[in-house]
Amino acid sequence: MRFLERSDTATVIAINETETTFLKATLSKYPLVTNENRELTRSDDHDELEEDTELLRSSIKEHTDQSKTKLSEWLASDKIFTPKDSEWLLNVPNEDLDWFLQILNDLRVGSWQQLKCPSPEEIQALPLTPETVEPLWTMELAGLLQSFLLRNH
């Protein structure tokens, strides 16, 4: 996977066949972040915010549902993944950049939650097991793509 260019219309990233397959499978898992742990405040004396916390969760659930619908349409489009020689080009339109960053971040943070929120040092020490390999790869892939998309942004 390598960054190719950022033009007036899109950011283009070259990815090989295996990465493309894994990326599409990873994106299909969206969303991964759990909603029920969201809180409006860390203070204990905000009883007046209980109802508002529920509104926060339902509002973000609605936002996530809309993003999931858009992601399905996006992946079905023949303009996002285009073949070139023996690899693929991922074309992220500039108008979708912020939205796609949110998708990738959900996958990254959700995978981290699946690993029980380890520190960076703990992540380095995690053994590769059937339980850890998928979230670790997802975190790595999503983080790498985020870095490409934020480059020169």
Partner: peptide
């Protein structure tokens, strides 16, 4: 404040509002 916390959390940042 609620509006900003909603937006920041939609990006999965750990944001809260405190009085």
């Amino acid at each position: 404040a609620e509006h900003f916390v909603h937006q920041l959390q939609s990006y999965n940042l750990q944001a809260t509002m405190e009085r």
